[in-house]
Structures are given as C-alpha cells and as structure tokens.
Amino acid sequence: MKKPKLATVWCEACAGCHMSFLDLDEALVDILAQVELTVSPLTDFKDYAFPQVDVGIVEGGVGNEENREVIEHLRQQCRFLIAWGDCAVFGGIHTLRNWLSKDEVLRCGYVETASTVNGIIPAHEDIPQLLDKVLPVNAVVAVDGYIPGCPPAPEALAYCLKELLAGRLPVLPADMIHFD
C-alpha cells in the first residue's frame, strides 16, 4: 500500500501545535514511518506549490494575505483538511485584535511602543498585508476535521492520523477535546 501523503502548514499561530507533534517523542519515529510527510516546517520537502496530498493539516488562523493564499491553495491540493489547534479551529488568541482596526494594532506595535525610535508602519511588496480580522480556517475554506487545544495533546493528533489511516474521518472523543 502506498503511504498516505501529509502536508502540514502553520499560519497565524505560535508553532505550539507543531511542537506538540514533536512531543510524541519516540512514537514520532513510528508515525513518520507510516505516512509520507511532504510540505511541512519540519522537513525540507517544500515547494512553491503543494503537491497533491491526502491530508493537509493547518496550524493557525488566517491573519494575513499570505495565510489566506496558503490555506486556499492547500485546500485545493488535499483530500482532507484538518484544522489543528485553537487558532485554526476557533481563530484563537489572535482574534483579540478582531475588534480593533488593523491600523490601530499596527500603529501601536510600530509607532507607540516605548523603545521604537522611527515610528513607521512596515508596508512593502515583500511582506504580506494583514487581513481585517483573524479568522478560523473554516471561515475561509471547508474543513473536514477538527483538533482543538492550545496546543492539542500529541495523542490527539496521533489519534486523528490513526483514524485517517483506517479510512475514517476523525472525530475526537469527548475526553480528548480540550480548549486550553
């Protein structure tokens, strides 16, 4: 049997979900043997375009233009899209900026902070623009499975991968769901 292909990305997030994946520790070796990890911050298998994959896993909400492109693109390239972590599932902690204007948030960060000397707001062709709101992934594209948690326990991702390997769309049992 061909190994299922996996792609993982992170958008507006803290990397905690990917770190939680590494917290599988020794079990990581087994899991990596069962799937083919393609595009991922953990590997070098990256490309401008995603390859066709079976499962796409997203850490993080959608907070800037680049995030949105990534998500839309990944959705096209994968059969199952999994939202991973509170940011991807609900929008997460960064949604605290959603009731503020993005200009206000930027001005605070780059003009009003105590140590900044030349208050200008970065804006350049080489850096993406912020969206007005940070959104959960399912507000942008259709999502097939959800693993909430900040970060989700390593076992939760392992469980979902096992379900997918068994040909089932994963739904976390109640005792694996947590939001903190």
Partner: peptide, 12 residues
C-alpha cells in the same frame, strides 16, 4: 467537551 463541540458552525 461532553457534547463534542470541536468547532463552531456559526460565525463569531
């Protein structure tokens, strides 16, 4: 948790 509300189907 009990009702397995693992995401929201309504906009926030």
């Amino acid at each position: 948790y009990e009702l397995q509300m693992d995401h929201l189907t309504v906009p926030q």
